[in-house]
Amino acid sequence: MADASSVEIRGVDKFYGSFQALSAIDLSVPPGKVTCLIGPSGSGKSTLLRCINFLEVYDSGEIRIDGRMIGYDAPGGRRMSGGALRRMRQSIGMVFQQFNLWPHMTARENVAEGLLRVRRLRRAEAMARAEAALEKVGLGDRMDNHPARLSGGQQQRVAIARAIAMEPRLMLFDEPTSALDPELVGEVLGVMKTLAGEGMTMVVVTHEMGFAAHVADRVAFMDRGELVAVDTPEAILTRPEDPRIQSFLRTFHERNSF
């Protein structure tokens, strides 16, 4: 990927009423690298991920994509205009746990929608690009299916195709395999691995420790709204120093062994 984005998060706080969901988060995501966010349920992983494309409003600090602040026109400043925010979002792809495919459109139409309504491509070109994106995720033979006629793994691959068709420079994944039957997890992780191999900048919230260990360049551990540690997968997953990480991994291994 010639022009992958970098993400720079500095001092980000996020409140829901009086509850602090994110506390002074600092995180750098270098271009072309894969960063996995792990941590217990409710620790703020999704909240942080959703702040990166401003689906969730952060209250203070700054998040910069390629040096450009998202959501506000300056630190502590006014909200950025809707148009400017939409332009930034065009180059940030997002994949959700529940796929969020549009059920009234076929796979091809799902992928083409953004090309038509956001990129304003001509119909023929949008369709051609949509088909290419679907081919890439291995769904060349499923383009005319509506989501209800696709398996969970296929739906999630359509969702990935929908994101990459926009030619993003950054991809955000929020537990992309958590809603899938175990036998369908591999096909989605496979597509993600390919993307990572092409040099896409990726931030991935996941419980797939195998993926974090083998694909991530960095693993960040969150607990109660704080970013406890960021390091290599090896350092976080095999010899963690922080007792919170140790106990998280212990319960995690207990749950996943038999």
Binding site: N53, G82, R86, Q90, F96, W102, E113, G114, M166
Partner: peptide
């Protein structure tokens, strides 16, 4: 489901298009 509009917002779709299309 709110996720339907969110997916559209995430690719940069404007609100009127989200209303019309989703």
């Amino acid at each position: 489901p709110p996720g339907q509009a969110e997916a559209a917002r995430a690719i940069g779709m404007a609100e009127p298009a989200i209303v019309r299309r989703i």
